[in-house]
Design a protein around this nucleic acid. Structure first.
Length: 278
DNA sequence: ACATTGACCTGAGAGC
DNA sequence: TGCTCTCAGGTCAATG
């Protein structure tokens, strides 16, 4: 990856649920079933609850059997029964490569698994806000972390239950991983744009119809992002994500201009025409 | 329960 | 050209 490519992907890649789902599919189609010959920890700071020595010992000889995603976490089951836990922070991603192949080692590798077949699986995380760890059990990990239900797996009733009694602003509520897991800054904006709800609206002010609309919009948004392989250029018309910049014309064609506001300390994009005055 | 602020982290881009 | 400043955002902790 050259510098320009690196810069571009840094701008675009902010791993939320759809991004991690793509990572899961990538892992499932590349690095499974090969014994791990050696584990290289290049950045100890990203390890959580485990030393480099322990991680290497637990991975040595083990095979990655299948990946599972919960919210923004990727949990990889080993044939030994334990799980490798990966969180991608803001800038993390995976790459499967070998010497002389078309893909090369990326620029900020924090963990590198050397596999028996000569290929390597890199966990790259430029800004070190990600996390690598081990878990004995995936369900218990999710519970102990206090994660809410996965945003894509939860049913309509479960979503409505999660909002019940909430009084905070809707955007930070969607982003609260304890309430539902997987939604971050970008996709909360997108779902709210699709549902035509101002991000600053209190959940308490949303009537039943608006809550259902939000739930459907969130599901639609996440599924669309995955189908587009999180590439902004592949998103269908009418999506905000490819036009997350101040002054862009409303993707829905209402004539409004996209504006940036700050909600709960985060930059939020919305269309004043479609999403009300707030 | 909820809001706010700051810390963590690195690199890009702006402004001087 | 090179410096300083701000910003990006996932998560956590402290404070109101």
């Amino acid at each position: 990856m050259d510098d320009r490519e690196s810069a571009r992907s840094t701008r675009r890649r902010m791993p939320e649920l759809p991004d991690v789902e793509i990572f899961k599919r990538y892992l499932d189609s590349t690095a499974l079933h090969q014994p791990i010959r050696r584990t290289e920890v290049r950045e100890e700071d990203l390890l959580r609850g485990v030393t480099p020595q322990k991680l290497a010992r637990r991975l040595k000889g083990a095979r990655l059997e299948a990946a599972r995603r919960h919210g923004k976490f990727l949990l990889v089951r080993l044939d030994t029964g334990s799980w490798l836990v990966l969180h991608f922070g803001m800038t993390g991603f995976l790459r499967y490569f070998r010497d002389g192949g078309s893909d090369r080692e990326p620029g900020h590798v924090r963990l590198l698994l050397h596999l028996e077949n000569g290929w390597r699986l890199a966990y790259d995380c430029q800004r070190k806000l990600g996390e690598v760890g081990l878990a004995d059990d995936a369900d218990r990990f999710v519970q102990e972390r206090g994660l809410g239900p996965d945003a894509l797996e939860m049913g309509r009733e479960e979503f409505l239950e999660a909002l019940e009694g909430r009084r905070g602003m809707v955007k930070p509520t969607l982003m609260n991983q304890r309430i539902l897991a997987g939604v971050g800054n970008v996709y909360s904006d997108e779902a709210l744009f699709q549902a035509r709800i101002d991000p600053r609206t209190s959940v308490a002010e949303l009537d039943a119809a608006a809550r259902r609309r939000l739930r459907d919009a969130l599901r639609e948004t996440l599924e669309t992002a995955i189908a587009a392989r999180v590439d902004p250029e592949r998103f269908p018309d009418g999506y905000l994500l490819p036009r997350r910049e101040e002054g862009a014309s409303c993707p829905r064609g209402c004539g409004g201009r996209v504006e940036r506001i700050v909600v709960s300390g985060r930059g939020a994009y919305r269309c004043p025409g479609c999403q009300g005055a707030g």
